[in-house]
């Protein structure tokens, strides 16, 4: 059982949970994730470590409401409990003094890129951060990312905040500079990472992405998370989630992400109906009951 110490709504659909997890906080490194199971009937879902505090014994997770698990998570409050949290899993992001590093965060990926940008900064790199979202009401952690960056660009699809456009445009501009950056790290929706890879390709700068296939255990025992990288099958939870963007088979990743689309939709609708019929109970007691 892991107590929720703090909840913050970063945007209407993106939420932050600070959770008691001393053993994980002690070992966490940028780029790693945890597997979370909300309650006895829950799915195990992967969420990136957005932050951690070894002294306080807590970790911070940031998630976007997409399906049933994340919608249910969004209902929890400080004082509630998560049944299971396991980690830190996956290989940490390779941090080193490369020179200039571009950190691209799209959507909820901003939460995952923030600790990487911070670590890259601490390692002595010049950090250029590019943060993107569909619209201004989906942006969060702008100050936090800015504070660890030497250069900071924010961009929205609809132009409601910062520049108008998508993250690949400023990425291309930074890549075209002379001298160009020494490394690019892009985290966000699979499609965004795919286009960042395409954008970076002509510049032959090492580009790292954090892949997000569907996972079950997150420890390498099931193969659900298999991705194809440089023609080889790899387990993202064990060998990744970071991989060289130029080697990733993006179509395979996108197809595998669709595997349960029908079932997920059905589950979300069923849950929404249940909430609608018993709104008060849901809001108040979910989670408390398991404490």
């Amino acid at each position: 059982m892991h107590r929720i110490l703090r909840k913050e709504d970063l945007t209407p659909s993106v939420h932050l949970l600070e959770i008691e997890a001393p053993a994980i906080a002690r070992k966490a490194k940028a780029g790693q994730f945890v597997m979370v199971r909300l309650d006895e009937a829950g799915e195990r879902i992967p969420l990136t470590l957005a932050d951690w505090a070894p002294q306080a014994g807590s970790i911070t997770l940031v998630f976007l409401e997409v399906g049933r698990e994340t919608n249910m998570l969004a209902k929890l409050c400080a004082g509630d409990y998560l049944t299971d949290v396991a980690g830190p899993l996956g290989q940490p992001t390779h941090i080193e003094k490369f020179g200039t590093v571009v950190c691209v965060g799209g959507g909820v990926g901003v939460a995952a890129i923030a600790p990487i940008a911070r670590s890259m900064n601490e390692a002595g790199n010049r950090v250029v951060s590019i943060m993107g979202a569909r619209s201004s009401n989906l942006l969060f952690w702008e100050d936090r990312l800015k504070s660890v960056s030497h250069e900071f660009i924010v961009i929205t699809d609809d132009g409601s905040h910062g520049r108008h456009g998508v993250v690949t445009q400023p990425l291309k501009e930074v890549l075209e500079r002379a001298p160009g950056p020494d490394r690019v790290i892009a985290i966000g929706p699979a499609v965004m990472m795919k286009f960042c890879a395409l954008t970076a390709r002509p510049f032959s700068v090492k580009t790292i992405v954090s892949l997000n296939p569907i996972m079950v255990d997150g420890t390498g025992m099931c193969g659900s998370c298999r991705v194809s990288v440089a023609g080889q099958t790899r387990f993202a939870c064990l060998d990744g989630p970071d991989f060289d963007a130029q080697d990733v088979d993006w179509d395979l990743l996108l197809n595998r992400l669709r595997t349960y689309a029908d079932k997920e939709k059905q589950a979300l609708e069923m849950w929404r109906r249940q909430c609608a019929s018993a709104p008060a109970r849901e809001g108040e007691s979910s989670g408390h009951a398991q404490g």
Partner: peptide, 12 residues
């Protein structure tokens, strides 16, 4: 994960 009891158990 008891996927045979989906959607009561939530793993598909």
């Amino acid at each position: 994960m008891k996927a045979y009891l989906f959607p009561s158990y939530r793993t598909p």
